[in-house]
């Protein structure tokens, strides 16, 4: 059973009006359990839309989305996934621990169980002594780690992330990437990750899904797979750079799609 299965999905906003946008056209994507898949492409190519379709925050115009073998609507009701956005989006009026407990509270967990899980999640993101602080007392990177802890609090098998590190400085960003890999390995979480950073996509992913705009669609899927034991050294390794080159060419190819002969591009890549 795939973690995510997107079959023949299109999403057209404002259909039949002058403001019509073909955000996604005929998208097919399968993500296997335990995989880390990144969506990359220029802004407006429908990355966020695809993620929202998987999350059932949007309904597809055509096609079907299944998550964990259920309809996306059912898996949202079952809290089968956690979500994190570019802005950590912690609630100012809740302590760090209470923020992490939010999804559990909505599910009706009792108090002791919630507190225990919050503490477990704080250990996971290595901020165990921060439970009683307020979110605004934390740095941006710490806030984002709390947001990840919140997303994973109910132990969902799937994590959906929309440019979660986009607002962080480069140093923090690389540290967070390492942490995310560790956390997902420890919890065996499947991840669909939206980014527009090529190195980030390559470093994190098993597969990088390359998308193009107008109309939004998937043009290529690049296998990277730098292995299970990625470290800071991996960023200097040859296969890291060849991964980056492959994704860059895929992106450039899609840019030049209409101008150049697509066939030539295809030959070069294979």
């Amino acid at each position: 059973m795939s973690a995510v299965h997107v079959a023949g999905v299109s999403k057209i906003f404002n259909q039949g009006t002058p403001k019509q946008v073909d955000a996604l056209v005929d998208v097919n994507l399968t993500v296997e359990p335990g995989e880390f898949v990144s969506l990359i492409g220029p802004s407006g190519c429908g990355k966020s839309t695809l993620l929202r379709l998987i999350a059932n925050l949007l309904e597809p115009t055509t096609g079907a989305v299944t998550v964990n073998g259920k309809t996306s609507a059912q898996s949202r009701l079952d809290q089968d996934y956690g979500m994190a956005f570019q802005q950590a989006g912690l609630f100012d009026w809740r302590s760090v621990a209470k923020n992490i407990e939010l999804p559990l509270e909505l599910k009706g967990w009792d108090k002791e169980k919630r507190a225990a899980r919050a503490q477990e999640m704080l250990e996971l993101v290595k901020l165990p002594e921060f439970a009683d602080l307020m979110p605004w007392q934390l740095s941006g990177g710490m806030q984002q780690r709390i947001a990840i802890a919140r997303a994973l609090a109910a132990h969902p098998p799937l994590l959906l992330m929309d440019e979660p590190f986009g607002a962080l400085d480069e140093m923090t960003r690389e540290y967070m990437q390492g942490e995310l890999l560790r956390i997902c390995a420890e919890t065996k979480t499947t991840v669909v990750f939206v980014t527009h950073s090529i190195p980030e996509a390559v470093y994190l992913s098993n597969r990088v899904v390359v998308m193009t705009p107008r109309p939004g669609r998937i043009t290529e899927v690049v296998n990277v797979n730098l292995g299970a034991n990625r470290s800071e050294d991996t960023r200097a390794a040859d296969n890291f750079f060849s991964g980056i080159t492959a994704v860059r060419e895929a992106l450039r190819g899609t840019h030049a799609d209409h101008a150049n002969a697509g066939a030539v591009r295809g030959v070069e890549d294979r």
Partner: peptide
């Protein structure tokens, strides 16, 4: 209440009442 927070509550399949009391009212204070 920010759109992203509303979306977060939606992603948890929170009811209207839950969204009201756990997000909208605290944000309104």
């Amino acid at each position: 209440a920010p759109a992203a927070s509303l979306e977060l509550m939606d992603s948890y399949a929170a009811s209207w009442k839950q969204t009201m009391f756990k997000l909208r009212f605290p944000a309104a204070i």
